[in-house]
Simulated scan of single mutants.
Amino acid sequence: MSITTTTLTRAAGAAAVVGGLLYIGVQINHPHLDLDLLATTEWKVRQAMKIGFATLSLAGITGMYLRQVRRTGVLGLIGYLVLALGFLFMVSIEVTGAVVLPAIAHSSPGFAADILAVAVPGGHAAGDIGLMGLLITVDGVLYLAGGLLFGIALFRARVLARWAAALLALGAVATVAIPLLPQVNFRLFAIPTGVALVGLGYSLWREQRTLTAPLLPDATTPRLDPAGAR
């Protein structure tokens, strides 16, 4: 199989679709974050899903940006870089949660509990968690700002599904309201972003498929006989 730009772009679209589905799936019946959860298989599975979401979504938005780099302009570049950095930070945080936290849960339960506390929007650590607190805060800002800027750039470019681009921007902004609505399950705010990624990824995949579809001859068009042509 030859590797072409079209093939890579379609793969990026598929990656965004799978990443969005993982993000939606990980929110379903998500248990309360506590030390007991760290020792379970469910924790490992959900962390793996989060890592997969961030990694595949990074590949997906890269394909989206490269497909319309001229149309998105400076805003698209800034939005892509900020959101990509947010996904990179997210991968490091989720890998730490999957590998490090279960290993130190017994020896340093206070530290592990504080990490879980700040992982919840509006949560605060009782003790000192060092640079982890700053990393989580910065990642949240990058994710919010990047989603907003990149969503606006995609919407203005008019290449991929505009409803999905708008939903990406709105989903990022909606996360600001989480601390103001403590009675609402904060995981519901992640669903619009997951749906937006699925919509954008499918739009990118479908567009590339349309571009590469073979042109079939029109049955109503008369065919010339090369032997009888003058």
Rank of each mutant, 00 (worst) to 15 (best):
I3P: 00
T4D: 03
T5L: 05
A11H: 11
G13C: 06
V17R: 10
V18F: 08
Y23D: 09
Q27P: 00
Q27R: 09
N29R: 10
H30N: 09
H30Q: 13
H30K: 11
L33F: 13
D36I: 00
L37C: 01
L38P: 00
V45Q: 11
M49N: 05
M49E: 12
I51C: 06
F53E: 13
F53D: 13
A54I: 01
S57K: 10
Y65R: 15
Y65H: 15
L66T: 10
R67E: 09
T72G: 04
L77D: 04
G79V: 00
G86D: 04
L88R: 06
V95F: 13
V95W: 13
V95D: 12
L101H: 05
A105Q: 15
A113P: 00
D114M: 05
D114S: 07
L116Q: 10
L116I: 02
V118H: 08
V118Q: 11
V118W: 08
G127H: 13
L134A: 12
D139E: 12
G147D: 01
L149R: 04
L149Y: 00
A153L: 03
A153D: 02
A161D: 15
A165I: 01
G171C: 03
V176H: 08
I178P: 00
I178K: 04
I178L: 05
V184R: 07
F189H: 13
I191G: 05
S203V: 04
W205F: 15
Q208H: 13
T212G: 04
A213N: 03
P214C: 02
P214T: 11
L216E: 12
P217Y: 06
R223A: 06
P226E: 04
